[in-house]
């Protein structure tokens, strides 16, 4: 990944893979009501992909230096398995962990590159993933931790 476009293509591909993953989970899920949840997750990832496509076309910009709240809910949750009988709580944990991993990947890459433009793109992508993580963490806070 040596150019901005290559980086964006990689990120777009990652979002598409996430959308496909959730679409597949929607097909496999046997638990009542979870198909719709995974379909919604998949649509959310498609929205992320579309935003990056807009960025690549120059129609939107990534903001690398914006503050995004980190609720740190993901950090202390255990890994869960992706089974056909997965609950909404565990589905959210999977989504949060995936967004956190993506955030870390782009943050690490930003640390490693010296070129200004590329660094800005990685930081911008990291912020995007941080926002996605906040979206799922807020949902977890509202729906799962209602009494906690």
């Amino acid at each position: 990944m040596n150019t901005v476009d290559e980086i964006l293509d990689y990120a777009i591909d990652q979002e598409q893979q996430a959308a496909d993953f959730y679409a597949d989970m929607a097909k496999r899920s046997e638990k009542s009501g979870m198909k719709e949840i995974f379909q919604e997750f998949s649509r959310e990832e498609e929205r992320h992909r579309d935003k990056l496509l807009d960025v690549k076309r120059g129609e939107q910009e990534l903001t690398a230096h914006q503050q995004v709240l980190d609720l740190k809910i993901t950090d202390y949750l255990v890994e869960v398995e992706t089974t056909e009988n997965i609950s909404y709580q565990d589905a959210l944990i999977i989504a949060m962990k995936r967004e956190r991993a993506a955030f870390r990947l782009y943050s690490d890459l930003a640390e490693k590159v010296s070129e200004g433009d590329l660094r800005e793109v990685f930081l911008g992508l990291a912020k995007e993933e941080a926002k996605h993580k906040l979206f799922f963490e807020s949902e977890y806070d509202d729906r799962i931790l209602q009494e906690n």
Partner: peptide, 26 residues
């Protein structure tokens, strides 16, 4: 731990559950 409760709808067969509108276990 008492951080909330969820439902168990496993008694409803998939063929019927698929027709029903269910969200967040409700």
């Amino acid at each position: 731990s008492a951080i909330g409760q969820g439902s168990n709808l496993d008694y409803i067969p998939a063929g019927i559950a698929d027709q029903l509108q269910i969200k967040w276990g409700k």
